[in-house]
Write a protein that binds this DNA or RNA. Structure first.
Lengths: 176, 176, 176, 176
DNA sequence: TATGAATGAGGGTTCATTCAT
DNA sequence: CATGAATGAACCCTCATTCAT
C-alpha cells in the first residue's frame, strides 16, 4: 500500500484523494485510513520511509575515500529520488506540514549526513569554503521542485551547474 | 483585484478560497467569478501579469552594455519576484495546468527574452558556452520553489552558487 | 430553515443527518452548513430559540395573581413544548454538548424564571417547602424524555402525579 | 462480554464503537459480531438481561407483607438500575427500536410485575386509586433519563416527589 | 471458534461556481 | 454590473459488518 501511495503522490501531488490511493492499491478507502489514520500520517510515513533510504545511502558514503565524489553523487542521487515524486517534493518544500516532526531522530537526520559529507568534501578541497549545509539543503529542495521533475535530463543539467557553482572557487588557481 | 488575489495566494497558497480573495479585494465572490470564470483563469491571469512585468524588465536590459550583469541581475530579480508568491510558485511548478497556453504571445515570451540575455552574456564571455536557455529556465523555477520562499537570504545564497556555476568556466584559467 | 430543522430533530432525534434536514427545508446541504457552520451550531440555535420562547412565557406568568397555577401551568406547558421535540429533549438532557454555553444570558435563563415561579408558588402555599429549583429542572427534563414523548395523555398524567407530589404537603392539614 | 458492553455504553453512550466494546471485553470485534449479529441485537440482549433481573427482583417482592414499601422500593431500585447506564437509558427511550419485541415473554414481563405490585399497593391504601400501570412505567422511564443520570441525589429527590404524588390522596385526610 | 484486516456506505464540512435580485 | 445566498460534488474520516485465516 505504501508503494501505491508513493505512486499516487508521485503522479498527482499531495492533493491526490485518498480514494485514488486506495484505488491504486486495490483496496477500500477504509483500509488506507485504517493503516494511516489521517492523510497527513500517510505523507509522514512515506516521507520518513524515503528519508530513511536517503540517510542510509548517505551514511554509506560517509567513509568514502573520495569525499568530493561522495558528496556530489549523494546530491544528485537524492535529488533524483525526490524529484521523481511530486508529493515528496511538495512535502519537502514544507507544503503545509511540519518537517521537523517528521524528520527527527537519527534515522532521518538528513541534515546531519549532509553536514558530514559537506565538511569532508570541503576538507578535501572539492567544495569551496563559504558553503553551509543549509545552502545545500535549499539547493536540493529547489532541484527537486524544478518545473519538469520528470525530465531527468533537465535535472542532470541543473545539478551539473550547481555542482560547478559549489566547486568553482576551490578549483580556481590561487594566484587568480 | 489581481493585487488582492496575488496577496491571498502569497499568504495562503493556491488553496486559498475564492471567498478570501473576494474579501481582500472588497468585492463579492460573484464579482471575482465574473472577471475570471474559473479559478484557473485567475491563476493564469496573475501569472500572465507577472510574466509581462518580467518580460518588460528583461527587454529593458537587452540592450545593456554589460550583458553579464544584465543577465545575472535579471535572473535574481525574477526569482525574487516569483519566490515572493507562494501560490504562483506552486502554479509555476505545473500544479496541473498548461504553462504553454499561459505564456504564449510576444508579451509573455519569457523564454525569448531569457534567450537574448543568455546569448549576449555568453558572447561577452560572462556565461559559459554549454548552457542552454532551458537550463536557465529550470534553474529559475527551481530557485522560486526553495524550501523557504520567504527567506530572502537563503534565496540569495542559492542564486550566488548557481551564478558561479554558470560563470565558472569563463573564469577558469585556460591552462587549468 | 429553522422550522425544518426543528421538525427533523423532532421526528428523528439529534442524530438526524444534515442531508435530511436540508431535504425537509428544500435546500442543499451546503445551505444548511452556510447558515450554521456545524451541526452543533444548529442544535444550539434551535435550543436557544425554544428556550427563549419558554423564558418569555414564564416571565409573563411571573406577575400572576395565582402563583400556584402560574407555576404548574408553566411546568406543564414547558414539558409539552420540549417533549414534542425529540432532539430538544436529547439536547436538554445534555446529550453531548454544553448546555451552559447555550443557555446563558438573561434571555435564556430558564433556571432564573423557574426559581421565581417556584419561590412565589411556595410563598403562596401552593408548593411545599423543601423543593428546590434543581428538583424542578430535573423533573421537567425527565418528563420531556418519557418513553412516549408524543403521547400527550401519558405526559399529562405524569405531570399530574408530579404536581401532586410537589403540592402534597402544603395541602396536608397542619395537625396531620 | 455483556458486562463489558454495559460498561462501555454506560461510559460513552449508545454511540460507543463496537471496537471499544470488544477492547473492553478483551476479544476481537468479530467475536462480538458473532454473538450479536448486529449492534441492535447487542442492545436488545443487554436490555433483556437487565429487565430479567428487574423482573426477578420485582417478583420476589410480590408476596411482601408491606405492599406499599414493596412497590416504592421496587420503583426506586429499578430507576437506579437503569439510570446508571446512559446507553440503556437512551435505548429505553425508544432510540429507534422496538421495545415490545424486546420485553415480551414471561421472563421480561415488567409490566405484569409492575401491575401486581401496583394493584397490591393500591389495595393496601399506599397508592391512590386512579393510577395505572402505564403511568408508573412512564414515570420510571422518565426518571431514568433525568438530566444527570449519574447524579444519585437528584434522582432520589425526583423519586421522592413522585412517590408523594402517587401516595398523595391516601394520605390526604378524608374531609379535605 | 476466534480473530482483526478489509470493506464501503454514510457522516459532516468545504468551496468553486451559478444565478436571482 | 455587482452581489452573496444557494448549490451539490468532493473531500476526509468513522465504523458496523464481513470473511479469510
Amino acid at each position: 500500500m505504501l508503494e501505491a501511495a508513493i505512486a499516487a503522490f508521485a503522479a498527482e501531488g499531495l492533493s491526490v484523494p485518498i480514494h485514488e490511493i486506495a484505488r491504486r492499491a486495490g483496496v477500500g478507502t477504509g483500509t488506507v485510513s485504517r493503516h494511516f489514520p489521517t492523510k497527513e500520517a500517510l505523507y509522514i510515513a512515506i516521507v520518513r520511509d524515503r528519508i530513511e533510504r536517503v540517510v542510509e545511502r548517505g551514511r554509506a558514503r560517509t567513509a568514502s575515500e573520495d569525499p568530493g565524489t561522495a558528496f556530489f553523487e549523494f546530491f544528485e542521487t537524492t535529488v533524483d529520488e525526490f524529484a521523481a515524486n511530486l508529493g515528496l517534493a511538495d512535502a519537502l518544500a514544507g507544503a503545509g506540514f511540519d518537517m521537523h516532526a517528521v524528520a527527527s531522530g537519527a534515522k532521518h537526520d538528513v541534515i546531519g549526513i549532509l553536514g558530514d559529507l559537506l565538511t569532508r568534501a570541503q576538507k578535501a578541497g572539492a567544495v569551496r569554503k563559504g558553503i553551509e549545509v543549509d545552502d545545500i539543503k535549499a539547493l536540493m529542495v529547489a532541484c527537486c521542485r524544478g518545473p519538469q521533475s520528470a525530465d531527468a535530463r533537465a535535472r542532470r543539467r541543473m545539478v551539473e551547474v550547481i555542482s560547478q557553482g559549489l566547486r568553482t572557487e576551490t578549483r580556481r588557481p590561487t594566484r587568480s
